[in-house]
Amino acid sequence: MLAQTVLAPHRATAPELGTVKALMTEDESPVSDAPLYRPEAIGLLLLALLLSPKGPKEKK
């Protein structure tokens, strides 16, 4: 399955070894936790809705 390989010529350097170790021990993804309910956000949305300018009217 991995047969088409020529063997590597040299022993790994310290940075290479460090890279391999880092790839072996991948940490969890730096994503945020699941979306949380934030009741205060509703007030902000309503305020933004009230303060938003009116849409343009169609000319007669």
Partner: peptide, 25 residues
């Protein structure tokens, strides 16, 4: 069965990237 050449590559990888004594890996 794992092809012998594949096993040989794994052994070579172990030689080129030797194991050290620290860490969960």
């Amino acid at each position: 069965p794992t092809p012998p050449e594949t096993t040989e590559i794994v052994a070579e990888a172990f030689r080129v990237f030797p194991s050290d004594e620290s860490g969960i890996h």
